[in-house]
Amino acid sequence: MPIKKDRLKWIYERMCLIRKFEDHVHDEFAAGAIAGFVHLYAGEEAIAVGTMANLRDDDSITSTHRGHGHCIAKGVDINAMLAEIYGKATGACKGKGGSMHIADMTKGMLGANGIVGAGPPLACGAALAAKLRGTDQVTACFFGDGASNQGTFHESLNLASIWDLPIVFVAENNVYAETTSTDYSMRVPNIADRAVAYGIPGVVVDGMDVFAVYDAAAEAVARARKGKGPTLLEGKTYRYYGHFEGDTILYRTKQEEQSYKDRDPILQFHKRVLEEGLLSEDQLAKIDQQTDTTLKKAKIFAAASPFPEPQECLEDVYVKYP
């Protein structure tokens, strides 16, 4: 089914925003302005945005250490995100989480997560809550190729399949778990091939093509929403930056990197919507400008925000502790 014009604009806007956000964070980390462990999503935008374009505000997602893209696509406030990454009091987590733990329960964003493979069990819980309450909410569970070798992935696919949980498991196969390629870490060519072990559909799509992701996610989300159970959807993608900021990236070739950049999800989208007359040059330029403004405002907000008071370290451990 063709994607509506407003949706197309939203897709372009979100993909641009993610890319610009990540490029900015990259520069700021290099400049020494950001502390800690930072993992960037640039290159993978089509997966978060193509999936989230099929979700409602009241649907839930679980994310990964590479979570900025999921947050932006799910509608987490970009000002609060950037402030969090700088460790500011106005951050999404009041400076207690940082890049790896940005969350917004009010947006159904159940957290970026520092533990590879931790999301799938949590996603089962969110989906179980929806199912037991009789709502038609869906949970999308994002994870990488590395996580697909964790026990939690396998246990969760099994649990979700026997309970027909409304989940879409979205594998972002960016080829490398840190330095280790999927050629080494898996005997099957596709993560989605593992779906057969759990009696659920397994679908492989080009994760650099947001149209392909959108279509596959639409089907998987519809299936989940109808109560027909989970799908394992794999997007083949690539992270443009290293595993973390500071990675020397000595484990892959420049030619390989270029081969993915030649199929850049934003450029591909740009080209296709113009060719097919879906959006105009002007419309795209306007969106481009809007995202510049949005990011600029976020930078100003984050820069102007105070750091937390040191004693705020002691708060938020428990709801109540005598």
């Binding site: 839930s60 679980t62 329960m105 159940l110 931790a118 799938p120 069990p121 949590l122 996603a123 089962c124 819980g125 969110a126 179980l128 809550a129 929806a130 037991l132 309450r133 026990g151 939690t152 246990e155 969760s156 099994n158 649990l159």
Partner: peptide, 15 residues
């Protein structure tokens, strides 16, 4: 791992 994690996820989702 799956069902204790699911309990945590369900708790965070209001159960």
């Amino acid at each position: 791992s799956a069902f204790i994690g699911a309990a945590v996820g369900a708790a965070a989702s209001g159960m």
